[in-house]
Amino acid sequence: MHLKRVIPCLDVDKGRVVKGTNFVDIRDAGDPVELAAHYDREGADELVFLDITASHEARNTIIDLARRCAEELFIPFTIGGGIRSEDDVRALLRAGADKVSLNSAALKDPGLIESCALRFGSQCVVLAIDAKRVSAPGERPRWEVFLNGGRIATGRDAIEWAREAVARGAGEILLTSMDRDGTKDGYELELTRAVVQAVQVPVIASGGAGDLDHLAQVILETDADAVLAASIFHFGEYTIREAKERMAAAGLPVRL
């Protein structure tokens, strides 16, 4: 049976993990590769590294990171953040990343999704969508795509954009609710459900996980394929194992 995935997300700046951690089996909690290997041992199904490095010169550190991860990880990993071109994608895949996640570059040039899907295959092209609800209460719900952590509105409808990206060859959608991100109030169920129903590719729900019930809830209520979370794992609140046990107890098929 196809299993639901739990995906820890690591924010990386100049090759270092941004949010601190204190796991007993890690010597250097700032080292993304050590943290990643820890999550692999704990049973994470996959990992996402989000490069938030602003300066262009420091971009090569993310390629080094991909290379080191490829040496030490035995689960798939995705790299996102700051990817601008097909050459960036090629460099990351060559370094060993299994997938790349496109966001603002794809919005600027949707053809990038097509060219990457044609050249490297849909399976490695993830489209990241940061969506914010823009409809008034009582109105038919609408979500708009935002850039730069929710600061810049694009005028694009999130559901339409998801459909278009899949038609252009995106193999997966990483969907983040900007309304919920960082709130710990749980995932945005209505948004997630709308995207899951709009596309025929796996949808990864992101933004808002505050406890383990949230993980099970979003999958049970929307049929999302995977849940992505950061802080609930990084600060040792919950282990991946605990998350999966809770999901299994809720009747979800997971890898234990």
């Binding site: 049976m1 196809h2 299993l3 995935r5 199904d45 849909s122 399976q123 193999g171 997966e172 025929q200 590719v201 796996p202 394929d225 995977a226 890898r255």
Partner: peptide, 10 residues
């Protein structure tokens, strides 16, 4: 079915 089949399966 969702194509490609991506993820963990038994």
């Amino acid at each position: 079915t969702k194509i490609p089949h991506i993820g963990w399966n038994q």
